[in-house]
Amino acid sequence: MTRHISPDERLPETPSQTAGPYVHIGCTPGFTGLSMAWPDAGAQMKTGPVKGREITITGRIFDGMGAPLRDAMVEIWQADADGLFAAAHEARGEADRNFTGWGRCATDMETGHFRFDTVKPGPVPWPDGRLQAPHITFWIVARGINIGLHTRLYFDDEPEANAADPILNRIEHRDRIPTLLARGDGAGAYTFDIHLQGPQETIFFDI
């Protein structure tokens, strides 16, 4: 028996609450020194030799006074070098078996840095079939953040793809686009700082 459920019967999404100062106990127990049975999930994005260009992404998250958050947790989610996701929903082909596409990192308790050892993602399609520029989804939680913040990292060495990207094209305040661009050093090391407030406030998404 099937029954169509109309939109007005929808249940409300569970409300968010801050991850608080001790998010690492639950999400990166090894980072906190808990001698539990499992390795920290998301710590290794590469499980063997990977396709494509290997890169690193490092950065910090700054509050409205310019201080780095030293108690945050960052997650990233991205396609592999061919633009395929290691996901159940990926119907376009099989993603690189040695690449999870998902990373999780606690910011350093002293310096506030996060770091991901990953690969440069390939382009993936927009719902209308156009290609999006290579990008990485970021999700940030911490004490003082009531609901996780979504943003995207784009690459400053992809000017043509960025110029054609459906989302970057829709941003009215063009001077804010650099807040979404990771700066590469030409050798595979990218820097991506996130500003929660202030003149350089990162563009956050309601997706």
Binding site: A79, A87, P127, Q132, T137, G144, I145, H150, Q197, E201
Partner: peptide, 21 residues
Amino acid sequence: LRSPKAPLLSFPTSISEETSP
């Protein structure tokens, strides 16, 4: 000090958000 001030940028989800590990 940890709350963004600008409105969130809304856009429809794409495969980047519709997938998950």
